[in-house]
Simulated scan of single mutants.
Amino acid sequence: MTARPDAVVHLLVTGARGQLGTDLVRAATGRGWPVTAVGSRELDITDADAVRAAVLAFADGVRAAGGRGVVVNAAAYTAVDAAETDQDRAAAVNTAGPRQLAAAAAGSGLGMVHVSTDYVFPGDADRPYEVDDPTGPSSVYGRTKLEGEQAVREAHPGAHVVRTAWVYGAGGANFVKTMARLEATRDTVSVVDDQRGSPSWTADLAAGLLELVAANLPGGVWHLTNGGDTTWFGFTRAIFAELGADPERVLPTTTAEFPRPAPRPAYSVLSPRAWTAAGLTPLRPWREALSAAFAESAADFRPAAS
């Protein structure tokens, strides 16, 4: 899919300082698309007045320059365990903020892409979740993200909601960096082997999201992850291999042995069927993406030398 030849695409990216937001801005700039990048310091999406003013200013700029404007919301409250007790803040960022962005975008004639999560599902499936499968989050984080999806689609029927999972990137804190740090400081690492999902590199996710924006399809819900699936144990063994460490140092354990405040889905694999049916390009397998991530940003994933 390609963009309409008569349309220059302008992006307003929220959450632009995060893992995905950083790669979105980089990829869009590489395409030659004008980008307005805002992190929480520049725009608090829970502030309705600030959201309206920022979106209106962006829309005015798009109209003056000519082309098509799209708001891409990569901002989120992602502290899954903290959300169990910080429910008001999680709801403000994950539900109220996206609603305000979507309403402002719709009112200004802009497109909208909202990034969501596998946590909207109960995690008890035995085959990849389709976009229209019943949801049923078991955590506050998942519930607020699902309510955010619903709020976006109600406020902006033409919006795209894109669910992803197990995200890691060169910027910010993530599972890959945590495991790399543990590899450098422990003889062995025990990792759960009874939670399954699809590790997804932010650079690949960014490319996919921009393809969706360029295609200018009708609104809907999509799933976007790197291909294939594994467990956190299998993912960690692959990370050790990329670090040049012995994967046998990674030992399997169970979720029951490592209880957390928020329940984790046992199964988080998302089906790409709707994505590919629309003619969009499926992302490469997760293992191939992990190797590419280390090839491109090895220094970012390894712990800093002491």
Rank of each mutant, 00 (worst) to 15 (best):
M1E: 15
M1D: 10
A3M: 05
R4F: 07
P5E: 09
D6C: 04
A7Y: 15
V13D: 10
V13W: 01
T14E: 12
T14V: 08
L20E: 11
L20G: 09
T22A: 14
L24Y: 01
V25R: 05
A28M: 02
T29M: 04
G30W: 06
P34N: 04
G39A: 09
D47G: 13
A53F: 13
F58W: 00
G61Y: 00
V62F: 02
R63V: 02
V70M: 02
A75N: 14
A75L: 12
A76E: 10
Y77K: 11
T78I: 11
V80F: 12
V80Y: 15
A82N: 15
A82G: 15
A83M: 13
A83I: 12
T85M: 14
T85N: 12
A92S: 12
V93T: 12
T95A: 13
L101Y: 07
L101D: 10
A102G: 07
A105H: 05
V115A: 08
T117Q: 14
G123C: 09
D126W: 07
E130H: 03
D132R: 00
D133I: 00
P134L: 01
V140T: 13
Y141L: 14
G142N: 11
G148R: 07
Q150F: 14
A151L: 13
A151S: 09
E154M: 02
E154P: 01
A155E: 05
A155C: 02
A159C: 04
H160S: 14
T164Y: 06
V167L: 13
A170N: 05
G172P: 10
K177V: 06
T185L: 08
T188L: 03
V189R: 11
S190G: 10
S190H: 12
D194L: 00
Q195H: 09
R196H: 08
A203T: 02
L205A: 05
A207H: 05
G208I: 04
L209I: 08
L210A: 05
L210R: 04
A214E: 10
A214M: 06
A215F: 03
A215P: 09
A215W: 03
N216G: 15
V221Y: 04
V221N: 06
V221L: 14
N226F: 00
G227Q: 07
G228H: 06
D229K: 06
T230Q: 02
W232T: 11
G234H: 06
A238W: 08
I239K: 08
A241G: 03
L243R: 03
G244R: 03
A245P: 01
P247G: 02
P247W: 02
V250W: 11
T253V: 03
T253H: 02
T254L: 00
T255D: 11
F258T: 11
R260S: 12
R260C: 11
R264G: 10
A266S: 12
L270H: 06
L270D: 09
P272M: 01
P272W: 02
R273A: 13
R273T: 14
R273Q: 13
W275A: 00
T276C: 04
T276I: 08
L280Y: 00
T281N: 06
E288A: 02
E288Y: 00
A289T: 01
L290E: 13
F294S: 06
A298Y: 07
P303D: 14
A304C: 06
